[in-house]
Every structure is written in C-alpha cells, then in structure tokens.
Amino acid sequence: MIGRSRDWLLAFTSGILLALMLNYNGLLAKHTMPIFASWAAHGLGAFAAFVLVVSCSRLLGPPSKEAQPPPKAPLWYYLGGVPGAFTVILAAIAVNSSLALSGTIALMLVGQVLFGIVSDHFGLFRTPKRRIVAADFLAALLVLAGSVLIIFGRA
C-alpha cells in the first residue's frame, strides 16, 4: 500500500514538473518559436538525463557479476520521443485556430484521458491491462471538469 502511495505521489509530482517545464518552454517560445523552443528543451533535457544516468551508475557502482543481462527492448521502445516531439507541432497548429490556447489545452487533456482508458482496457503498446471500473469514470469526470474550470476561469 505504501508503494502505491509513492507511485501516486510520483505521478502527481511529474505533473508539477510538467507545468514548470511548459512555463519555461513557453517563455523561450515567446522569444523564438514553439518548435525551436522544444528543440532546445529536448537537447538540454537529453544532456540532463545523461548526467542523471551517469551519476546514478557511479553512485550504485558497477553491476554485480551475477546480475542477469537486461532483456532486449524492441526498437520501437526507443522511439517515444518522435510522437513526443510531434505534439509541439500539433499544438502550435491548434493554438492558432479559433480554439485558442485554453480550448487546445482542455481538448488535449480530454484526449489524454480517453487514450488512457482505451490503452488500459486493451493493454496498448504492451502496457499492463487494467479493467476500468465505475470509480475511474467518476475520477476522470471530476479531474476533467475541475481542469476546465481552472483553464477557462482564469480572468
């Protein structure tokens, strides 16, 4: 149960980090353009992640001899960054339409949750299958409706 709470908190914290990331990327995009800002953020993010990987392996020391070799990941496991980078382009198009920034963000959140439901149900991309229960729909409704109030209730 403690492990679950930790996972839950980590997921929430990653949302805070996402908000900070978007805040700074937005600032950079104001001075340049969205694709350039995302390009710079990906480059610096790769550098930061590389430092994390190296410092972690230093801290933990070399892997023990008995450790089994890690299973091999299929090539497409490495390509998550492609759709990730593509979102910047899609968002830039939608924001410039009559949806504006608020409408685009709201619809993106709805799309994410719908994908999550379908993905859990079918186990898309080899993710673990998880049965969606009534409480899940209520949670989704509350989070999305609350988010819409936050997005459009700004002024």
């Binding site: 997921a11 949302g15 994410q112 859990d120 899940d136």
Partner: peptide, 25 residues
C-alpha cells in the same frame, strides 16, 4: 518520473494524476 510509474499505475491513472499536478501548479 512518469515512465517509472506508468507500468505500475496504468495510463489512465497517470494521465489523471499528471493533469492534476499540472492544473494545480
């Protein structure tokens, strides 16, 4: 962070919790 928890919580819960963190922030 989300990569670590996603296989443990599932895509839907991660989506909801990330959105919550993002919106409150």
């Amino acid at each position: 962070m989300y990569s670590y928890v996603l296989p443990r919580l599932g895509g839907m819960k991660v989506a909801l919790l990330v959105i919550s963190g993002q919106m409150i922030s």
